[in-house]
Design a protein around this nucleic acid. Structure first.
Lengths: 124, 124
DNA sequence: CCGAATCCTAAATGATACTG
DNA sequence: CAGTATCATTTAGGATTCGG
């Protein structure tokens, strides 16, 4: 009996808050990564799972279904036991935000953790 | 023994992800609202609490201390038993992002929940 | 291969009381 | 006033199993 997830959960101050609506969509534990990955290409469930090994199968399924409810991604059965996930128009419209958030974070990390070891490219 | 919160918690794919760093800062349960409020003016603890009644005193204190650790807000004792919170430079630099996220959310809400009752101004 | 259902533990949050 | 400490409850998430 759910409608859109992110809308229901963005009423913290008694009314709908667009800022929290957006954050609600992006900030599930694995959602940003999923969106990032799908920004490059459509992927099967197992491919996504390989890309995000720390996310259990159960969690991946959960996050994917929430993103579907929020109309950010769409699911298509390509063959028996094969499902492909891709961004919807709404999902694609998030790209500039994702880029902006990523840039801010990169700047912040550089300033505050300049001494981070390793050769991170610092991107999703 | 904590360093910066948001940095530690943004290593979901084994390395630092700037996108998740930013989202980690913004997406604590009450953080976005706190930041919004402080974007207009510096506020005392009790004033913030009045603005966000659904957030318990305990949670408010928690979220404020995390935002402090992340260098987004600063805390100043103005008188005995009076503390004032305001944005740091990093906090202020979030303004464009907050605006962008809010705009996207407003658009999304309009399309997906056009029939929302009431006279919401749809802003934080 | 994809994902739902179940069970169980750990983490997050609320309620309340306490203190400088 | 601005928190902290403690306890009770809720919620999130992992492990495992099952089935289309």
């Amino acid at each position: 009996m759910r409608t859109i997830n992110a809308i229901e959960s963005s009423q913290k101050h008694f009314e709908y808050c667009p800022l929290d609506t957006t954050l609600g969509i992006l900030s599930g534990k694995w959602k940003s990564i999923i969106i990032c990955r799908l920004m490059s290409a459509s992927l099967h469930f197992s491919e996504l799972h390989k890309e995000i090994p720390r996310c259990s199968k159960r969690m991946l399924a959960l996050q994917l279904s929430e993103l579907q409810e929020d109309q950010i991604i769409k699911r298509q059965v390509t063959a028996t036991f094969h499902t492909e996930y891709s961004l919807t128009a709404w999902g694609q419209s998030l790209a500039p935000l994702v880029t902006a958030l990523n840039s801010w974070g990169r700047h912040y990390l550089k300033e505050n953790a300049g001494k981070i070891a390793g050769n991170n490219n610092l991107d999703c």
